[in-house]
């Protein structure tokens, strides 16, 4: 009987973890369609936000996480003049958990209008396993992919003081991690839209109990802890009607734990997850981001 029980525990006890099921990626596409994309999107900009094709560059970058023996090819899109990166300010946009860059194209395009059309460069990437990026999604890989983008920006002449990192939803994990810890570059400012605090909060919100995250996952994402190490100015945006990530239990925990030199919070009435720019109004949103970037 004891042997049976032991076998039962070992067999089950070493089985499932949620890690591989938490990614909502789509890697079935054959090409990026950008403006021609007809799938689900949070919003679609009008023609006044059009970006000339000559200012859109699709990149293939090698990404290698610690402990990996070879690199993984990921895709990124740079909006702006690559030859001017050595003098431009660049927004590094870390997108959320949905699908691939086509879903986030309108957001990246919008950011390319901060303080004027194509005033700043915008770099967005598909993490491994998303869109046309190769490999499988994973936490370490995601950080490596954003690091690879930083390395590319650095190679093209960008300095730390002209790098702004912008994380949305799941992308806030990379934004916090790479602003807090050693990476090819250290962003000068951090913008977090609808951040989540940690996997533990996600689980505890769901269960209503003080349940440890490692009951279900080996993910270590903990923005509320990582943000404590950051000194760069922080802008936190969150919809007060975010029905996915509670702005109180998630965003507020991150914001509260930030003890750096400057922080600013903008809570948007009536905005659900992904609706901050549209609910604010695109021009108000751009004005806010622009003003934050210009702050000394």
């Amino acid at each position: 009987m004891k042997k049976v029980l032991f076998l039962f525990v070992v067999l089950f006890g070493s089985c499932a973890k949620l890690d591989n099921n938490l990614y909502n990626n789509d890697n079935k596409i054959k090409e990026y369609k950008l403006d021609d994309y007809t799938g689900e999107q949070d919003f679609i900009l009008d023609d006044s936000y059009h970006i000339p094709p000559g200012l859109v560059t699709l990149l293939t970058l090698p990404s290698q996480a610690d402990g990996e023996s070879s690199s993984t090819e990921i895709k990124a899109i740079y909006i702006g003049d690559v030859s001017k990166i050595n003098s431009d300010t660049v927004l590094l946009y870390c997108h959320g958990n949905k699908d691939h860059m086509d879903f986030y194209w309108q957001r990246a395009k919008l950011l390319a209008h901060v303080n004027g059309k194509n005033k700043y460069g915008v770099l967005m990437m598909d993490y491994r396993g998303y869109g046309l990026s190769k490999g499988k999604p994973g936490e370490k890989g995601m950080y490596a992919d954003v690091s690879a983008c930083m390395q590319w920006l650095k190679n093209n002449g960008l300095n730390n003081n002209r790098l702004i990192i912008y994380g949305f939803s799941m992308g806030t994990a990379s934004a916090c991690e790479l602003s807090a810890n050693a990476a090819p570059m250290l962003p000068d400012k951090i913008i977090l839209e609808a951040p989540f605090a940690s996997v533990a909060v996600m689980i505890q919100d769901a269960s209503q109990l003080n349940m440890p995250a490692d009951y279900f996952t080996d993910l270590k994402i903990d923005n509320a802890e990582e943000i404590k190490k950051c000194d760069q100015p922080l802008l936190w945006l969150h919809g007060k009607s975010d029905n996915f990530l509670n702005y109180k239990t998630h965003g507020q925990a991150v914001y509260k734990n930030y003890h750096g030199r400057y922080k600013e919070s903008i809570l948007i009435e009536g905005a659900d997850h992904g609706q901050v720019p549209s609910q604010m109004g695109f021009e108000n949103y751009l004005k806010l981001i622009g003003s934050f970037i210009r702050k000394p």
Binding site: L18, N21, L22, N24, N25, D26, M202, I203, A206, S207, Q208, L209, M211, Y215, F216
Partner: peptide
């Protein structure tokens, strides 16, 4: 479908207590 899978997985989280 993937979203549904994501949601289903999280149901396991919630209802360990339920």
């Amino acid at each position: 479908m993937r979203l549904i899978r994501f949601i289903c997985i999280f149901l396991f989280l919630i209802f360990i207590c339920f």
